[in-house]
Amino acid sequence: MTAVHGDATVQSAIFRERGGLAGSLSDIFWRNPRLLLLLMLTPPVLWLGIIYLGSLFALLAQSFFSIDEFSGLINREFTLKTYGELLIPANLDIIFRTVLMAAAVTLAAAVVAFPVAYYAARYASGKWKALFYLGVMLPLWSSYLVKVYAWKLILAKEGILNWFFAKLHLTWLLEAWLALPVIGGNSLSVSYTGTFLVFLYVWLPFMVLPLQAALERVPASLVEASSDLGATPAQTFRNVLLPLAMPGLAAGSIFTFSLTLGDYIIPQIVGSSRLFIGQAVYAHQGTAGNIPLAAAFTVVPIVIMGFYLWGAKRLGAFDAL
């Protein structure tokens, strides 16, 4: 009887309703945890739905309008005329140029990041790993514009890079490179080469960190077993490391590719007068006042990234995530 009475006392203490509004709400949430979860998730979901998805759908709707050629006003009737304007040679050239630059930056970032990430994951420890993270993260702590303008000075004719080539008596090599069509120019600061170098520097940490995290999960015993079975380093890389590092490569490539696709500041400061998608959006929604065409241009990176993610999923890049 004493035990039963004690259990009843404990239960009454637990389930006894508290006084006041706060106590009543606390009791309701305690008995209905899903209600509390719903209330906690409602504000961020509303923010995401209204601010982000709402603006995205508004942008998509704008792309189906057109500009009246006589008055210059927006004709708010459904039409595919604006998307047809994307197919003219000048606009197709902008799209192809941006996609090629994004692909080149992504590929170069993967090549540069892989040995750095592999060393950090396999050999670095203690203070050396801390130094690695500091070195990778430090550029992200400085202002984006400061970094871009710093590279503008580095790549200029009077910059340190030209001085370095002159000290090594390799000015002829730099001039020969700048004389090449398309990728060359008057100086590195007004060429596609300079734009590529700045893109690579700014987005490289977004490739290194996911790749390093993926390589850290690769057991060292697998690499040793591959060597013991007679595999060459190239075979070990191709058949062991690369497949297991694919989730990190996929994550890093999504960052670098998408960020390059949408950036307009770097090509505006370091590069030639030929536009990228981001610059085209900025120009059409600004001075040109062609909001529908600007919206249509912004849909292009969304569609490209959709196909990119679909292709990566089909190749099994996300299987180990």
Score class of each variant (00 low, 15 high):
243 P>C: 08
307 F>G: 09
122 R>Y: 13
290 N>H: 10
307 F>D: 00
298 T>Q: 13
156 A>N: 14
213 A>T: 14
4 V>G: 13
181 P>V: 05
163 W>C: 05
193 T>C: 06
267 P>H: 10
78 F>A: 11
68 D>F: 13
276 F>M: 15
104 A>M: 13
2 T>K: 15
299 V>P: 00
6 G>C: 12
28 I>Y: 13
271 G>N: 11
296 A>F: 04
235 Q>M: 00
46 L>E: 05
238 R>A: 11
248 G>T: 07
165 F>N: 03
63 S>M: 06
93 D>K: 14
221 S>M: 05
150 A>M: 12
261 L>Q: 04
309 L>W: 00
70 F>C: 00
21 L>W: 07
139 P>I: 10
146 V>L: 15
155 L>F: 09
204 L>P: 00
141 W>K: 04
101 M>Q: 09
257 F>M: 06
152 K>M: 12
131 L>D: 08
239 N>S: 14
309 L>G: 00
222 L>G: 01
300 V>T: 04
103 A>M: 15
84 G>E: 13
83 Y>D: 13
191 S>E: 15
244 L>W: 02
311 G>Q: 07
25 L>C: 01
284 H>V: 03
312 A>C: 08
315 L>A: 15
278 G>F: 14
309 L>K: 04
30 W>S: 07
81 K>W: 04
226 S>R: 03
212 Q>Y: 12
183 I>D: 08
34 R>G: 07
100 L>G: 10
80 L>Q: 00
8 A>W: 03
129 K>L: 10
291 I>L: 13
80 L>N: 09
229 L>N: 06
99 V>F: 00
